[in-house]
Design a protein around this nucleic acid. Structure first.
Length: 511
RNA sequence: GGCCCGUUCGUCUAGGGGUUAGGACGCCAGGUUUUCAUCCUGGUAGCAGGGGUUCAAAUCCCCUACGGGCUGCCA
């Protein structure tokens, strides 16, 4: 069997959607699993939609996730170039060849004319007018004009496109790895444009030509391509490449968390979570998107989550890092139906991976977020803080909202608790306790604990009345890691100052 | 509208003629904890509907409904 070769072929029209990332992932996994080659090909044939920076974004996204192509625009390879705009000459050649063989024809209908034609047809009751076997003979093309005349027009510089001449009354069948046999009646297919007036190919032609020359063995792509696969099969046949036609695997789409339709780029803003791997900045603020990375996701969690959205290993396991995914991956376990994008599961995965990190690793991960806030910290303390905060964090930036008190005195107090508990005798005990802590020479967890617990026990107090006040005084909140650990990290000085500040504040709150 | 694809707990999914329909997230309850979180235990909830085929259907077939995709000189 020939060596497996797959490609991820995005268009640089903007940031790479998370669904595209999953497509890349599956291609990558399939390649690695089978000792094959994972190729990146940039499909930049639509110059009107080209967005500068998008190609760079795609590469950075793949790199962040560890999905590194072996061949591509940056890596090179013996089947390059890997940018379609750099392969321009190739496509025209094959478009012409198809025309010469009678499998395609030149068409001169302008976009404007087609638009008007469609409107007219629609008005006449045709639901979606198609340029196909039933209408092509009433259009402006070489089939009605005659080849001579058409060639003449082309020579004179009349803009033209090349359309595939879809045969009549044929059943086109292909065996999709995910969906099994899929068949189309050719009468339903339109005469797709394969070469545009600007001389560049459309997806359909470019794809077939490139896949053929790049020796692609499996085309793993989104379901949105299923409908046009019949055209692609025709192209392979007419070009006499049917023997090396790749196998197709059409992936189910990612759907909106709620409501109808597939996941769209706007859903991120709408639901408050990312639908892109990395953040994307553009001139138009409406087109600024936050990424999984910037949202606080780990690449391994993102991968794990994505992998399981439309694929499963066939057993109950669900924690998979890239290497394990490679071992377990198989195309036949891909699910057929679309999957709703559910961020809760993604967060859970993130937490699982965060929990696996050592305190040192976790400290490094939260550091950028803390620095971003402009907070200062002692390296050694940060590792301790990391250990305390790790089980409490699902997304990295939560270190700020949940652990702010480690880094600054500027935090709000939980007023509800203060109002409820800041009264005698509770408050007198707390003030008394502060005095005892002030006398403590060795301000370490064990000692602090002895003082506080001893005091509460000696005076027969309830933990529930004293502890929340201590906690809120020092951290502002009743939630958080072990208070004695926290105090030790903060240090005696800071803790005492916080008590003083808190007592003042508490008084004005209860007033 | 037409064509193609799909439909198992709220969500992701296992199961592909005989199962108490399994797991995970979420949610709820209990336990642990100074609180929160982690962790542990338990619970909640599903085969879209209708016809067939069969001794037996979540599983095979048909119809309907619903959902998704496509229907561009976009990919």
């Amino acid at each position: 069997m020939n060596k497996i070769r797959v490609r991820f072929a995005p268009s640089p029209t903007g940031p790479l959607h998370i669904g595209g990332v999953r497509t890349a992932l599956y291609n990558y996994l399939f390649a690695k699993k089978n000792n094959g080659t994972f190729i990146l090909r940039i499909e930049d044939t639509d110059q009107t939609r080209y967005v500068p920076g998008a190609e760079e974004y795609i590469k950075k996204s793949l790199a962040w996730l560890g999905l590194n192509p072996e061949e591509g625009p940056d890596q090179g390879g013996e089947y390059g170039p890997y940018r379609q705009s750099e392969r321009k000459e190739l496509y025209g050649q094959y478009a012409k060849k198809l025309v010469d063989m009678g499998y395609a024809y030149y068409a001169f209908d302008t976009p404007d004319e087609l638009d008007k034609w469609r409107k007219k047809m629609t008005a006449a009751g045709v639901h979606s007018p198609k340029y196909d076997h039933s209408t092509r003979m009433s259009m402006n093309n070489s089939l009605v004009l005659g080849k001579e005349k058409a060639l003449q027009m082309i020579k004179e510089g009349v803009p033209f496109v090349v359309r595939l001449k879809v045969p009549e009354n044929e059943t086109i069948v292909f065996d999709d790895i995910v969906r099994g046999n899929v068949s189309f009646n050719s009468n339903e297919l339109d005469d797709k444009v394969i070469l545009k007036a600007d001389g560049l190919p459309t997806y359909h032609l470019a794809n077939i030509v490139d896949d053929y020359f790049m020796k692609i063995t499996h085309v793993i792509r989104g379901e949105e391509w299923l409908s046009s696969t019949a055209h692609h099969v025709l192209l392979y046949r007419y070009l006499c490449w049917e023997d090396s036609m790749p196998r197709f695997a059409h992936l189910p789409l990612l759907l909106k968390p709620v409501g109808k339709g597939k996941l769209s780029k706007r859903d991120g803003a709408k639901f408050g979570f990312p639908v892109f791997p990395l953040s994307w900045e553009s001139d138009n603020p409406e087109d600024n998107f936050i990424g999984f990375k910037e949202f606080g996701f780990l690449p391994e969690a993102t991968i794990n989550f994505l992998a399981l959205l439309g694929w499963n290993p066939g057993n109950d396991e669900e924690m998979f890092e890239l290497e394990e995914l490679i071992k377990s991956f198989s195309l036949d376990k891909i699910v057929k139906s679309g999957a709703r994008f559910n961020i809760d599961k993604a967060k859970w995965f993130n937490q699982q991976y965060l929990l696996k990190k050592s305190d040192e690793e976790f400290a490094e991960l939260i550091k950028p977020w803390i620095e971003k806030e402009g907070f200062n910290f002692v390296e050694e303390d940060l590792v301790k803080i990391a250990g305390l905060m790790k089980p409490r964090i699902e997304l990295l930036p939560e270190i700020i909202e949940k652990g702010k008190f480690f880094f600054t005195d500027d935090f709000d107090y939980d007023e509800k608790i203060v109002r409820k508990k800041w009264k005698s005798p509770n408050k007198d005990h707390v003030i008394e306790l502060k005095g005892k802590l002030a006398n403590l020479e060795n301000f370490i967890k064990k000692e602090i604990e002895n003082i506080i617990k001893g005091y509460i026990e000696d005076n027969n107090l309830s933990f529930g009345n004293i502890f929340p006040l201590l906690r809120v005084a020092v951290t502002g909140t009743t939630k958080g890691p072990d208070l004695f650990d926290t105090m030790e990290i903060l240090g005696k000085n800071k803790v005492l100052l916080r008590f003083d500040a808190a007592f003042d504040r508490f008084e004005s709150i209860v007033k």
